[in-house]
Computed example of a mutant assay.
Amino acid sequence: MQSKFRYIAFNKPYGVLSQFTSEGGHPALDGFNLPKGIYAAGRLDRDSEGLLLLTNDGKFIKKLLDPSFAHPRSYWVQVEGSPSKEQLSALAAGPEFKGYKPKPCKVRVLDPQPEVPDRIPPIRVRKNIPDTWIEIELTEGKNRQVRRMTAAVGCPTLRLIRKSIGKLELKKLPSGEWREVSKGDILPR
Rank of each mutant, 00 (worst) to 15 (best):
Q2I: 13
S3V: 04
F5T: 08
F5S: 11
R6C: 02
Y7K: 01
Y7H: 04
I8Q: 05
K12I: 07
Y14I: 00
G15D: 10
G15M: 04
V16T: 05
Q19F: 10
T21V: 15
S22H: 10
G25C: 12
H26N: 14
H26L: 15
A28E: 03
N33A: 13
L34W: 08
P35L: 05
P35K: 04
A41E: 12
L44F: 10
R46M: 14
R46A: 12
L51C: 04
L52W: 02
L53C: 02
D57R: 05
G58N: 10
F60N: 02
K62W: 07
K62H: 15
K62E: 14
L64H: 01
L65F: 05
D66M: 05
P67G: 09
P67C: 09
F69G: 03
F69E: 12
R73L: 01
R73W: 01
Y75V: 03
W76V: 00
V77M: 04
S84F: 12
A90G: 14
L91V: 07
A92T: 09
A92E: 10
A93Q: 12
G94N: 15
E96L: 00
K101I: 13
K101D: 09
P102G: 09
P104M: 05
P104G: 04
P104C: 05
C105R: 03
C105D: 09
D111R: 12
Q113Y: 12
E115A: 12
V116A: 08
V116C: 08
P117C: 02
D118P: 14
P121C: 09
P121A: 08
P122D: 14
R124F: 08
V125H: 15
R126V: 13
I129N: 13
P130R: 03
P130K: 06
P130Y: 06
D131N: 13
I134D: 03
E135R: 08
I136L: 11
E137R: 05
R144K: 13
Q145Y: 13
Q145E: 15
T150K: 03
A152D: 04
P156C: 08
T157W: 08
R159I: 05
L160S: 06
R162K: 06
K163P: 00
I165T: 09
K167S: 09
L168T: 03
E169I: 00
P174S: 08
S175E: 15
G176M: 09
E177L: 04
E177S: 09
W178R: 00
W178T: 00
E180T: 13
E180G: 11
K183M: 12
I186R: 04
P188S: 14
R189V: 02
